[in-house]
Design a protein around this nucleic acid. Sequence first.
DNA 1: TTCCTTGCCGAAACCGGTTTCGGTCCGCAT
DNA 2: ATGCGGACCGAAACCGGTTTCGGCAAGGAA
Lengths: 367, 367
Amino acid sequence: MVPAGRLGGGATAPKRRVTINDLADDLGLAKGTVSRALNGHPDIAETTRLRVCRRAEAMGYRPLSQAQGIRTGRTRSIGLVLRTDLPNSQRPFLSDFLAGVTRRASAEHWTLTVATAASEEELLDIHRRLVEERKADGFILPRTDVNDTRIEALRALGTPFVLFGRTGDAAGCAWFDIAGETAMRQAVAELHRLGHRRIAYVGGAARYNFAKLREDGFRSGLAHVGFDDPPELRDRRAMTHAEGRAATLWLLDLDLPPTAIVFATDLAALGAYAAARDRGIHIGRELSVISYDGIPEGAYAEPGLTTYEADSLHAGDRLAALLIRRIRGEAAEDLRELAPAKLVRRGSDGPPLLTPANLADRLRSAA
Amino acid sequence: MVPAGRLGGGATAPKRRVTINDLADDLGLAKGTVSRALNGHPDIAETTRLRVCRRAEAMGYRPLSQAQGIRTGRTRSIGLVLRTDLPNSQRPFLSDFLAGVTRRASAEHWTLTVATAASEEELLDIHRRLVEERKADGFILPRTDVNDTRIEALRALGTPFVLFGRTGDAAGCAWFDIAGETAMRQAVAELHRLGHRRIAYVGGAARYNFAKLREDGFRSGLAHVGFDDPPELRDRRAMTHAEGRAATLWLLDLDLPPTAIVFATDLAALGAYAAARDRGIHIGRELSVISYDGIPEGAYAEPGLTTYEADSLHAGDRLAALLIRRIRGEAAEDLRELAPAKLVRRGSDGPPLLTPANLADRLRSAA
DNA sequence: TTCCTTGCCGAAACCGGTTTCGGTCCGCAT
DNA sequence: ATGCGGACCGAAACCGGTTTCGGCAAGGAA
């Protein structure tokens, strides 16, 4: 007559997981049979397969991935190794990216193991260790280099992976990427439409493949509107705020400075704001800026940064999905996706207030 | 006569892991004995224990955590569940924080499993699931609320955890925290020393425990220098750039505006820069600002943001260390650490250029 | 009818560890 | 000499799954 439940005072029994043995007993089948039924082996009658699956669902049975792993070698976990020694590149995206990966993983009953490495050698070691310890069945490789050592290393280990970003030779690789080259090409077209006739480019570090693609996009944009392509207007590189500031100052100090700059990354583009303050000109008027990434800080700047936004949440989601399919055995060639970046127009671009020559005068007189 | 190695053309054998059986065979011992020796059971002679350990080291034996886990229930992995629905709070710290956690975990042969949740209910579900699937032996709980539902839920599950931040009732909890209250108190003292006599405070969201602590610190700082504590100067709250801007405008529009504002978070403090632009005054001169967090964007602002920097890398490291010890059975009461924040002096604080009354005049004439 | 497949499932081995249970061997007290 | 308890280790069970192997019954061909 005493009501059941937590009123008993004692610790409620930690209600053990239901195991495959429980399920087999309940069904009156051998546990091997249950296992094969759940995994869809062909030597199980369709009727009993259904019966098993339904009962498993009803009893809330969930196989213990580690118990499966000891036999199969796979534990339904995807690996992600971050570099911590490089300029804090991925920082702004990381949170959204993780959300995308884990959401997709979770939906498929997978989990995410993350690790970090502080150097190139450590990087490969960490990957090796995770597969040896079976903490990762495969990897998402963020920030692909033009030629990436991780690819060969993982191939040697026989470990599946999917690239975030393409690479120099992506033969046999699965990848997801966002079309930065298209964004850069469009940025040039847009600035040309606004009336700019001297447009500079500040790229990313040459080791990264995205930097190469975006630069290609920029140059193709120039060619498309019939501009020539003077090296001094496209040789700058910057990955940080400070480098972006320096690159902008360098460009402004040219005899004939550009009236617009396309940046490969937002972080560098924000440095242009500091440079503009240094020289007493205004972003969006004397100097137009368009960049790429879509980091939140771009919205706080004054004026807001016009940029091509990459959807990191979506990227994480797709990468996780592709990797899981890759691990399940699909061909790498069938696992490639390219998504567009989205233009977020804020205030950093506009018609040129001055010609390049007038801008040069203005900058010299202010000095 | 054919040289061995990769010249053979065939795939080099994936050199199997060395298992406990290999080790036992090699030593001429039973595998149970080897297991007990490695785990330091008392019924193994010290001499053979040493012999086993040395040989294990030499052969590069590493127990497969999942194989251990199936019997012991633990897999040497620490869990971290991030919220993705709240204002992008932890974003800036995340990268460093993860680096700290994984570095420590890695050193102890542990790994990190991360997941995300988009709501309160999902949050608890995800924790439960990770425990049931044995993907996490315990959790680091970031961003503790004043009263945090995760605590009771994990206690009910019997799962160890360690808080990042203290909480309303931390009895029986292990935690690591950074002394935000001390930082806020020092900020007031510093502004007082500079000559400010009317100092406002913009706090964080009331649900978070850090917000309560920092506000306490601010008020204790006021009391210490003998100021009274008018509610209109400390009732603002802001967690985002936009909210910080609005809060600052509200304060500047008072009949007697403050000449200095202490912010609980950098993100909100950066909003003050926008507000200052709106009103035509300068941060660091007409309005001083000191805040807390140490996000990198603070350095790019003009003038640079003076802030108390929290060392996220260190925090992650300590939290991982504490959690591992907790899981190994140490008492929660012995696992508590408090670290100081470090003042990073940049340009946003200085002697007041105007009195509050003069500032009010100035703001009104500009309007 | 007989033989041979084929479909379907049970039994048992297996994966790599941990833990329980006994069984020697030894020293020591009786 | 006998009995006894403790130190130390081997053998086997166990954890929760997967996979191999073999057996039984039904169905088709001879």
